[in-house]
Amino acid sequence: MDTAPENLTALLTAFAQGDRGAAEELLPVVYEELRRIAHRRRWQWRGKDAPNTTSLVHEVFLHLSAGHSEPWASRAHFFYFASVAMRNVLVDHARHLQRAKRGGGLQRVELREQTRISEQKSVELLALDEALSELGAREPRLLQIVECRFFGGLTVEETAEALDISTATVKRGWDTARAWLYQHLHGGRSDESHPVG
């Protein structure tokens, strides 16, 4: 596979313009980098600290663009793409854990404490992913904001740059999206959320 930065720039541009084929070519490249960099950083993630996804994305970007004299026109596009890639990787993993559990394939294997925890979390993540797809079907922009903020760990400013919208719009959309997703996942559990009128 050609992973030259020139080619990546072209792919990112194509992706930003809605070319899904470009995403398929990009994903393995970005995934490889995420994996490689995550290896090096693993030791920092012991205990309760979540990996800093923002720094991951930044490092992947720096590595892929290294040795490329011209600055990427599509730095922002890359950040959005990496966020989507992260969502894919994590959701695939969660799905795998669930399937393995349902199929009984891995049942007899002694699971690490770590794995047991994330097995519970995988249920939540898959539900979130489903809700997110539903949100995306109605409100594509809100979906993109969640992908950047939640999966890519991007700041409000970076998300605004990646999606080419204002920071105020990102902040508002992020609030709306979280509130909507939570309603979709857990809403209606209290008496207060009965239909109005």
Binding site: P51, Q114, E124, F150
Partner: peptide, 23 residues
Amino acid sequence: EEGQAFSWFDEAESSLGLFWEEV
């Protein structure tokens, strides 16, 4: 339920780390 939504997301975000460990 805005408040609950925001804290749910904060917690969910930190649990992503457990996935990265295995992925």
